[in-house]
Design a protein around this nucleic acid. Structure first.
Length: 342
DNA sequence: AAACGCATCAACCGCCCACGT
DNA sequence: CACGTGGGCGGTTGATGCGTT
């Protein structure tokens, strides 16, 4: 038995909103607020619309200070990095971009950003392949992977990030070590008590504002592994996440930076969650790899002892974010409220 | 100018979760 | 504790616009 519909489907109007409907809704909410009940709202103001539809219309278009289109390079960067970090949590991503709605960002990602990244990626790989003669198939996943890396299981924990309320008030360009540290903290990491800023000298991220993906693509992302060890480096430096043998990752190994305990193995091995987080990233990781990660039970059980060189598959990848006080799979809506922050 | 294909985006759908009873 | 309901979310669809042939 299914649940009762939220409104009388036969008696509600669907499709595009007329200016009159917009005006009605807007003026009512501006004067009275939503009244805490979207379902009852359309009847109050004589709109033949579903309450959910009213809510959507208000949130996405009628609300003050909504921006449409014209995404900046900075916004691109934020969207990309958050997507890689937390997956398709559009509402969370939208919360970091004032004036943007989740729907807008979702559309933008699906229709443009994804293609933009993929296009650049293809060009680069094709250029490389010309040089080394590696035979590539036409499909995207193969383009993105080295021949033998398909069989391997990189550890890539995807962890929810906490609210970044001031994320956009700062420069999102990750171009100084302190802002990187702040960002990591905001994203849920916790530096050790004896943290000293100088410790981050070993932690190097793309310098400067990574214009779209170009600079990032030059990153050598290296997922190493004795166990569930992830490391990200750009040449002569590395940041490593996690700990071997499915133990809780209580320390960030290199760079004197440590994150609090997180059972990465557990998180990654939760198929549903992994699927949600990795879904849509096929163009970054390759479909086979995504499937392997999801079906294979995650890195804890499958990738230990293997090394995947992501250098050839470089993409938009930032350090996996490690949440504190994280246990198991986070419920969607309350995920971030439950995190504790320094 | 017409036909076609592709891209974009507003809106809907259905699921999950929180909360009240 | 179980159930019902509303809010919120991500995924998907379909109408429309635009570019190409």
């Amino acid at each position: 038995m299914g649940r009762a519909p939220c409104c009388d489907k036969a008696n509600v109007k669907k499709g595009p909103w007329s200016p009159e409907e917009d005006a009605k809704l807007k003026s009512y909410i501006e004067q009275h607020g939503t009244g805490g009940n979207w379902i009852a709202l359309p009847q109050k103001i004589g709109l033949k619309r579903c309450g959910k539809s009213c809510r959507l219309r208000w949130l996405n278009y009628l609300r003050p200070n909504i921006k449409h289109g014209g995404f900046s390079e900075e916004e691109d960067n934020i969207i990309c990095s958050l997507y890689v970090s937390i997956g398709s949590r559009w509402s969370v991503i939208a919360a970091q971009l004032p004036g943007r709605t989740d729907n807008d960002i979702k559309n933008y990602w699906n229709t443009r950003l994804k293609k933009k990244l993929l296009g650049k990626h293809r060009k680069e790989l094709q250029a490389r392949n010309k040089g080394n003669g590696v035979v590539k198939q036409e499909n995207n996943s193969s383009l993105l992977l080295q021949e033998n890396s398909v069989q391997q299981q990189p550890c890539w924990p995807q962890i929810p990030a906490p609210p970044l309320s001031s994320y956009t008030s700062q420069t999102p360009s990750f171009n100084d070590q302190d802002s990187i540290r702040k960002l990591l903290i905001k994203l849920g990491g916790r530096f050790s008590d004896d943290y000293e800023p100088i410790g981050l000298n070993n932690v190097q991220f793309p310098q400067g504002s990574f214009s779209s993906t170009q600079q990032i693509q030059e990153e050598q992302v290296h997922v190493s592994s004795s166990g569930c060890m992830n490391s990200i480096g750009n040449g002569n430096s590395q940041v490593q996440f996690g700990q071997s043998n499915n133990e809780y990752c209580s320390e960030l190994v290199q760079g004197e930076v440590s994150f609090s305990s997180v059972g990465i193995g557990e998180m990654v091995s939760t198929n549903d969650y992994s699927q949600r987080l990795l879904g849509g990233l096929e163009f970054l990781y390759g479909e086979e790899m995504i499937n392997d990660k999801i079906m294979g039970g995650g890195c804890a059980s499958s990738c230990c002892g293997q090394t995947t060189n992501w250098g050839e598959t470089s993409s938009v990848m930032y350090p996996p974010l490690v949440a504190s006080s994280f246990e198991g799979v986070m419920p969607r809506q309350s995920a971030f409220q439950e995190l504790s922050y320094p």
